[in-house]
Design a protein around this nucleic acid. Structure first.
Length: 564
RNA sequence: GGGCCCGUGGCUUAGCUAGGAUAAAGCACCGGCCUUCUAAGCCGGGGAUCGCGGGUUCGAAUCCCGCCGGGUCCGCCA
C-alpha cells in the first residue's frame, strides 16, 4: 500500500512542478521516508540553484500549484515546511492497508525465473559457522525474492571433483567411519585423519591423484566409492539445513559437467573466441581488465574447478532469466573471471551477493585443521540456552511445549543474527555473544507476535468474536494505532526494495521496527477492555499486526510461536 | 606490491548506490513502571569532533584525493 501512496505522491508533485513551470528533467523526483512526514521531497533545494530563489520560497510555490487528487486517493495532505514538501496519508490509506493485510496481498508475479546458488560447501565435513552465513543469507534472499513474486530455484553446487573429496574417499578405504556420529561429522573425522596421514607420507599423494584421474574418467568402482562418501556427508548437511529451516535446495554435481562434454565445449569455444596463450599443453585465457591469465586446462589435459564452474554457469544462464550467486569474499576474483569468460561465451553474467568472512577470535576457519565451530554444535547450544529462558518464564507449560518454543526461539535468534548485519561486514564470531538469547533481535519480534496471538486467544475465551468481518477502522485514532498501521503498510515495500537491491538485512531492521510499533500499541491501547466498537476495531488491528509479524518472520525464515 | 571490502557512543550495528530537517537502533550503564490483554515488554537519563588529513558544495557520515588500521584475493587448489 505504501508504494501506491508513494507513486501517487510523486505524480502529484510532478504535476505541480509542471504547473509552476519548473524545469525538473534532470532531477530526481524520488520521495524520501522521513521522521517528519510520511514522505518528503527535497526538490526545492535542487531548484534553488537554477532559479536563484531560496528553497523555502520554491517549496511554498510548488505547494501552491499542487492539486490534491479527488476521489479515492491515498494522500491526505501536502504542505511546505521550510524547504521541504511533506506528504501525509489519509484515512483511506489506513483502511486499505488493513483490508490488504486481512485479504493477504499477493505480490505482482514477476516474469523472470531465477536460479540462486548458495552454500555449495565441499562435502568433506559438516557446515561450519562460515557456511552458515552463506546458507542463511542465501535462504532469506530466496524467500524475499519469492515473496516479491519471482520463481526461484535454489541450487547447491556440489564440488565432488576436488582434492578434498579424493582425500575423503582415500581415507575411507583405510579408516572406518564413526557410525555413532552424525554422518557429516564422521566424514570430517576421516578427512582430518587422512590429511594427517598424507602429510606424514607423501607417497600417498600419488594414490589420491590417481583417484581423481579415475573419477574424472568415470571409472565405475571409483565413482561408486565417491558416491557413498559424498552422499554420506550430504545426508548430514541436509539434516542441518532442515534444522536451520533452510528451504529445499537442488544439489548439482560438478562431475556431471565434466563427463557430459560441457566442459570440453567451453574450453573449445573459449579457445576460439578468447585471447589465448599456450604454455606447453596448458591453455591460458587472458581476460580483459584482469591481470592474471586464467588457466582453463591443465598441461595434463584434465579440467579445472574454474572451467567446470564455467560450464555450470553457462548451463544455469541458459535455463533461467537471472542467475544469482551468494559467494564468500574469497570468490570475488573468481566471480569477475567468471563474468568475463561468460561474456565471451555470450551467456548472461550472474549477479553476485558477496559476503565477508566469519572468523574466530583465534583466527580463520579451517575444516582440514579441525578449526571450526560446526553449525550443529551452535544450534545445539543455542536451543539449550533458549530452553533455559523458556523454562524460567513458563513454569506452567509441559516439557515438550517448552522444547518446541525453545527450538523456534533458538534457531530464530541464530538466523536473525546472521542476516541482520550487512554482508560486507567481517564478523568475528563470539560464542557467548551468539548464545545470549536475551539480547537477540528475533525473540523480540517473536514475542510481539505471541502477544498478538495471546490477545486474540483471550478475546475468544471471553466470548468475543476474535476477528469480526466488519469493523470501523476510523475508530483507530490513537497515535500508536496509526503508527502501527503505517508501519504495516510498508511490508510489501520493504520486501520489494530488498529484492531489488538483493539486500536482505533491510528486512531485519523493518521487522524490529514493526515489533516495536506493535509493542507501543500494546502498551497504550487496551483491547479487551475497550468499549464494543473500539474493541472490535482494535481486535481487527491486532489480527493484522499478527499477520504482518508472522509474514515478515516467514520471509526471514523464522518460525512464529503462538505463545512464548 | 596491486585489486576489492570494512573503520559511526564502552561494545555490535543502521544510514552511504540517488549529499539536506536535532547522526538512528540494540547491548552495556544509571533511574522509574507488573490490582488491566505474557515485564523476552514500556518510559526517562548520560554517552559520538561518523578512523585521520585535505578537496568539491549554500550544505558532507554520504561524493573526490591522500594517509592510517583491519579483512580478503592475487595456485596448471577447490
Amino acid at each position: 500500500m505504501f508504494l501506491k501512496f508513494k507513486n501517487e505522491a510523486e505524480r502529484v508533485l510532478k504535476d505541480a512542478l509542471e504547473k509552476a513551470s519548473y524545469e525538473y528533467k534532470d532531477l530526481t523526483l524520488d520521495l524520501d521516508e522521513s521522521e517528519h512526514a510520511d514522505l518528503s521531497s527535497r526538490i526545492a533545494f535542487s531548484l534553488a540553484r537554477t532559479y536563484k530563489k531560496p528553497p523555502a520560497t520554491i517549496a511554498a510555490d510548488i505547494v501552491n500549484h499542487l492539486e490534491l487528487p479527488t476521489g479515492d486517493m491515498l494522500i491526505g495532505d501536502a504542505v511546505a515546511v521550510g524547504p521541504y514538501i511533506n506528504f501525509s496519508v489519509n484515512d483511506s490509506f489506513l483502511r486499505k492497508t488493513l483490508q490488504g493485510l486481512k485479504n493477504g496481498i499477493a505480490a505482482d508475479r514477476k516474469k523472470e525465473k531465477i536460479i540462486l546458488e548458495h552454500t555449495s560447501a565441499n562435502p568433506d565435513g559438516p557446515l561450519h559457522i562460515g557456511h552458515l552465513r552463506n546458507a542463511i543469507i542465501g535462504d532469506v534472499l530466496v524467500r524475499v525474492l519469492e515473496r516479491a513474486g519471482y520463481e526461484v530455484e535454489t541450487q547447491y553446487y556440489l564440488n565432488d571433483m576436488g582434492r578434498q573429496i579424493a582425500v575423503v574417499v582415500w581415507g575411507a578405504d583405510r579408516i572406518a567411519y564413526d557410525e555413532t556420529k552424525k554422518a557429516d561429522h564422521a566424514v570430517a573425522d576421516v578427512y582430518i585423519a587422512a590429511n594427517r596421514m598424507l602429510e606424514e607420507n607423501d607417497e600417498f599423494l600419488d594414490e589420491v591423484g590417481e583417484l581423481m584421474r579415475r573419477y574424472e574418467a568415470g571409472d565405475a568402482e571409483v565413482v561408486r566409492k565417491y558416491e557413498v562418501a559424498v552422499q554420506k556427508c550430504l545426508s548430514g548437511i541436509q539434516a542441518s539445513f532442515k534444522r536451520l529451516n533452510i528451504q529445499h535446495v537442488v544439489f548439482v554435481w560438478e562431475s556431471t559437467f565434466a563427463r557430459s562434454g560441457a566442459v570440453k565445449g567451453v574450453i573449445e569455444e573459449l579457445t576460439r573466441k578468447g585471447n589465448i596463450k599456450l604454455e606447453g599443453s596448458a591453455i591460458l585465457l587472458q581476460l580483459e581488465g584482469i591481470e592474471k591469465a586464467l588457466v582453463i586446462q591443465r598441461a595434463d589435459g584434465t579440467s579445472l574447478y574454474t572451467t567446470r564452474d564455467l560450464a555450470y554457469h553457462r548451463w544455469k544462464g541458459e535455463n533461467c532469466d537471472r542467475v544469482i550467486d551468494v559467494f564468500g569474499k574469497d570468490h570475488e576474483l573468481v566471480s569477475q573471471q567468471l563474468s568475463k569468460a561468460l561474456e565471451l561465451l555470450g551467456v548472461k553474467s550472474p549477479e553476485f551477493v558477496i559476503f565477508a568472512f566469519v572468523s574466530l577470535p583465534s583466527g580463520s576457519l579451517s575444516t582440514r585443521a579441525g578449526r571450526y565451530i560446526s553449525a550443529d554444535e551452535l544450534m545445539e547450544k543455542i536451543e539449550e540456552r533458549a530452553y533455559d529462558e523458556v523454562d524460567k518464564r513458563r513454569t506452567d507449560l509441559d516439557d515438550s511445549k517448552k522444547r518446541e518454543i525453545a527450538r523456534k526461539v533458538g534457531i530464530g535468534a541464530l538466523r536473525y543474527d546472521m542476516v541482520k548485519v550487512s554482508p560486507d561486514k567481517h564478523i568475528v564470531f563470539d560464542f557467548d555473544d551468539a548464545l545470549d538469547i536475551e539480547k537477540k533481535g528475533a525473540p523480540f519480534i517473536q514475542y510481539s507476535h505471541a502477544r498478538a496471538c495471546s490477545i486474540l486467544r483471550a478475546a475468544q475465551e471471553q466470548g468475543y468474536v476474535a476477528v469480526s468481518k466488519d469493523y470501523d477502522a476510523s475508530r483507530l485514532k490513537e497515535p500508536s494505532e496509526t503508527e502501527l498501521i503505517k508501519k504495516l503498510s510498508k511490508l510489501g515495500y520493504v520486501i520489494e526494495a530488498a529484492a531489488a537491491d538483493l539486500k536482505v538485512h533491510q528486512v531485519t531492521k523493518y521487522a524490529r521496527e514493526l515489533a516495536e510499533s506493535f509493542n507501543l500499541f500494546y502498551k497504550y491501547c487496551p483491547v479487551l477492555n475497550a468499549e464494543d466498537e473500539l474493541r472490535k476495531a482494535r481486535l481487527g488491528l491486532v489480527d493484522c499486526a499478527r499477520i504482518g509479524l508472522r509474514d515478515v518472520l516467514a520471509v526471514l525464515g523464522i518460525e512464529a510461536p503462538g505463545e512464548m
